[in-house]
């Protein structure tokens, strides 16, 4: 129990194997379903009986909607509203996964790079396709910024290409590393509470403060992921100058 990494272990709830490929239903799959269910529940309850003057739950849903809408319009322009459903779903999923992970006995799906990288890859491939659809081959001009001496392209183009392709990696590592580091730190500090006896009150106070900080980080990381998807979408929709 004292092992701070034990919380990240994936266990098979229902073992499934199809043609030699392990497709087991794991605790991660279960928590993804729970998180999706909780997010859907909030939206469904909030919009069950919509009124002009919103109640508490409806206000919460409207606030979430407006935050994402503001982010999309300010970071990627009003034409990016077309992609609102996907971005809003991503935001809600990460937000609920991060927050649910703070509950005792829960499992944080976003603390696994497999989950965050899959999401980042979907966003990355999708945004690249949107860019090609919008700008055609002109999208490639992004790798050759205008207004530099021709010789500089030898250095600049590889840098631009690498900086483009590390985006999904930095996007996923940021979320996964923040969630994992926070949870490990909480567990390590919590371990001190028991072993220090009466002086355990000191790490206890730190853990309480850390939990507040982790709540902030959970919300902030969901927001940061969303903002970055919007910033990258902006590059795809609008030609560089």
């Amino acid at each position: 129990m004292a092992d701070p990494l034990h919380q990240f272990v994936i266990t098979k709830t229902i073992p499934i194997e199809v043609a030699g490929i392990d497709l087991s239903f794991t605790n991660a799959s279960a928590w993804m379903l729970i998180v999706t269910g909780l997010a859907s529940l909030l939206i469904l309850i909030g919009l069950r009986r919509p009124t002009l003057v919103p109640g508490r739950t409806q206000s919460a849903v409207e606030m979430l909607y407006e935050v994402v809408d503001d982010t999309i319009v300010s970071s990627a322009g009003p034409e990016a509203r077309k992609y609102f459903p996907l971005i809003f779903t991503t935001f809600l999923f990460i937000l609920f996964a991060n927050l649910a992970g703070l509950l005792p006995y829960s499992f944080t799906v976003t603390s696994h790079i497999a989950v965050t990288f899959a999401m980042a890859l979907i966003a990355f491939v999708g945004i690249t396709l949107v860019g090609i659809a919008h700008q055609g081959l002109g999208f490639l001009r992004m790798f050759a910024p205008a207004g530099v001496p021709p010789l500089m392209y030898l250095i600049l183009t590889p840098i631009e290409i690498v900086s483009y392709f590390i985006r999904p990696i930095s996007l996923s590592v940021r979320l996964f590393a923040n969630m994992m580091a926070g949870h490990v730190l909480l567990k390590v500090l919590a371990g001190f509470i028991v072993s220090l006896g009466i002086f355990g009150i000191v790490p206890l106070a730190v853990v309480v403060a850390m939990t507040a900080l982790e709540t902030l980080v959970a919300v902030l990381q969901a927001y940061v992921f969303t903002v970055l998807v919007c910033v990258y979408l902006n590059d795809a929709l609008h030609a560089h100058h």
């Binding site: 990696i169 940021r174 590393a177 902030l220 940061v224």
Partner: peptide
Amino acid sequence: AGTAMGIGFRIGIELVVGVVIG
């Protein structure tokens, strides 16, 4: 402060990932 922290989170990891991947 929240936004400033958001910016910090955004740029901090970029350098690390760039160097490690490169």
